[in-house]
Simulated assay, not measured.
Amino acid sequence: MGVAPAIGPETTRGVADIVAVDLRPQIGAIDAGAYPETVLRALGAAGAFAHHTDGTAAGLLRAIEAMGEIAEACLSTAFCTWCQDALVWYLARSDAPGPAGQFAATADGRHLGGTGLSNPMKAFSGIEPLALSGTRVPGGYRVRGRLPWVSNLAPGHRFAAIFALDDGRRVMAALTTGTDTVGLAANTRFVALEGTGTYTVLIRDAFVSDDDVIAPDAAAFVPRIRNGFVLLQTGMGLGLARGVAALMRTDDRGRRQAAALPLPPEAIEERIAVLHERIAVAAERQADPDRSTFLEILRLRLDVSWLALESAQAAMLQFGARGYQEGSEAFRRFREAQFVSIVTPSAKHITAELARSA
């Protein structure tokens, strides 16, 4: 594919304008559980989900930067953006004929959806078994199983999934939610990111057409997409850290009192700049399937997680009791930062992978 889709007349609006006008007034509601669908559709119309469709380093970096702009304000919306970006990434990298018809509408936000690869990524690393199984039938497959916590979903949204066949082959395909055979269940509440459309997906003998297959051999396809999958996530952590630094700068009283603390906003911004340079270098190698490249990207992703955690902690320390109150901005960013380190691949997943390869 590799060609960005045509975008409608709303492209005159940039990400910064959408964040300022559409997103920021809704942050409290999103943190309480409202799904930011209108914001996401505006971002899609503005081209925010299409930067990386050509597979170039520049396009991938621009997608990361756009996600970072969103994460400066709201990690929930940035995470939904990553889910959408990941689905677009899979469709853009696919050689199967079916995704061509789904690509443009996903890249411009007319179709929203999720990545669905948390369980498969863990399965490919030997952490847990593959959750879905399938059987070949005329015209497609019958798929069954349960996926916990797939995000950026609502009835009618699509998500990618990988299922195992009886012969051991693994197939990657796109499924549509909200049907009799692909149901959504909200069975928990999270301490943050409650507004991300995160559900357990219950798949009951669902028919998956050959037209919905992204990769008939997922084991061969995953090494082609995993570098971009992980690199795209860095936009969440860097944007959150940048937003935290800006929050700390607005707090003149706290900054004077916290002048001796070890991580002021200036130090956060310096680390962001270094990580951004490393991300730009890594983006140049995203197409390299060699495992050593993937491990280096995992190290980079881990360093972004640490910065997000340390930045949010620094803000809490600076704000003190004011940050510890329910509803405080510092505490919202602190809760969000925890997620950066637990979303797949999580810090414990990455450290285990790196230790195994040492």
Results as ranks from 00 to 15, higher is better:
Val281Arg: 13
Glu296Asp: 15
Ala321Asn: 01
Leu317Met: 12
Arg322Asn: 11
Arg301Asp: 00
Leu307Pro: 01
Ala260Asn: 11
Ala280Pro: 00
Gln257Leu: 15
Val343Met: 10
Arg249Glu: 13
Met248Asp: 08
Met316Lys: 10
Gln286Gly: 05
Pro262Glu: 11
Arg291Met: 07
Glu326Gly: 07
Leu307Tyr: 04
Pro264Glu: 04
Ala308Gln: 02
Gln286Tyr: 04
Ala308Pro: 02
Arg299Gln: 14
Ala287Glu: 09
Leu261Pro: 01
Ile268Glu: 02
Leu298Phe: 03
Ile272Glu: 08
Leu298His: 06
Asp288Met: 12
Ala245Val: 02
Val304Cys: 09
Asp252Pro: 00
Val304Ser: 04
Leu309Ala: 14
Ser346Cys: 07
Ala282Leu: 03
Arg285Tyr: 02
Ala282Val: 06
Met316Trp: 05
Gln338Asn: 12
Phe319Met: 05
Pro262Thr: 11
Ala287Tyr: 01
Ile350Ser: 09
Leu275Glu: 04
Ala337Met: 03
Phe294Gln: 07
Ala308Met: 06
Glu310Trp: 05
Gln313Arg: 13
Ser311Gln: 04
Arg253Tyr: 11
Pro264Met: 08
Ser292Ile: 10
Arg249Asn: 14
Leu247Phe: 04
Tyr324Ala: 15
Ile279Asp: 01
Pro264Leu: 07
Leu309Val: 11
Met248His: 09
Ala273Ser: 09
Val244His: 03
Gln286Val: 09
Arg253Gly: 13
Gln313Met: 08
Phe294Met: 08
Phe294Glu: 06
Ala267Ser: 13
Arg242Asn: 06
His276Asn: 10
Ile350Asn: 12
Ser346Val: 06
Ala282Cys: 05
Val274Pro: 00
Glu284Leu: 12
Ala282Phe: 01
Phe319Asp: 03
Ala267Gln: 12
Lys348Ile: 07
Leu307His: 04
Ser328Thr: 06
Arg278Gln: 15
Thr250His: 14
Ser292Thr: 15
Glu310Val: 04
Ser292Val: 12
Val281Met: 04
Thr250Glu: 13
Gly320Leu: 03
Ser292Leu: 11
Ala315Gln: 05
Glu310Met: 04
Asp251Met: 09
Glu269Asp: 13
Ser341Gln: 05
Ala259Ser: 15
Ala312Ser: 13
Ala258Ser: 14
Trp306Val: 12
Ser328Leu: 03
Ala321Gln: 03
Phe334Ala: 10
Gly243Met: 00
Val281Glu: 12
Ile268Pro: 00
Leu300Val: 10
Ile268Cys: 02
Arg256Phe: 14
Met316Phe: 05
Leu295Pro: 00
Ala312Glu: 00
Phe319Gln: 07
Ala321Asp: 09
Met316Glu: 05
Asp288Leu: 10
Arg285Glu: 13
Ala321Ser: 08
Gln286Trp: 08
Leu302Trp: 08
Gln338Met: 11
Met316Tyr: 03
Ile342Glu: 09
Ser292Met: 10
Ser311Ala: 15
Gly327Val: 05
Gly243Ser: 02
Ile297Gly: 07
Arg335Ile: 01
Val340Asn: 10
Ala258Arg: 09
Ile268Met: 06
Glu336Ser: 08
Leu295Val: 05
Ile279Trp: 01
Ile272Thr: 14
Ile268Thr: 10
Leu263Thr: 12
Ile342His: 11
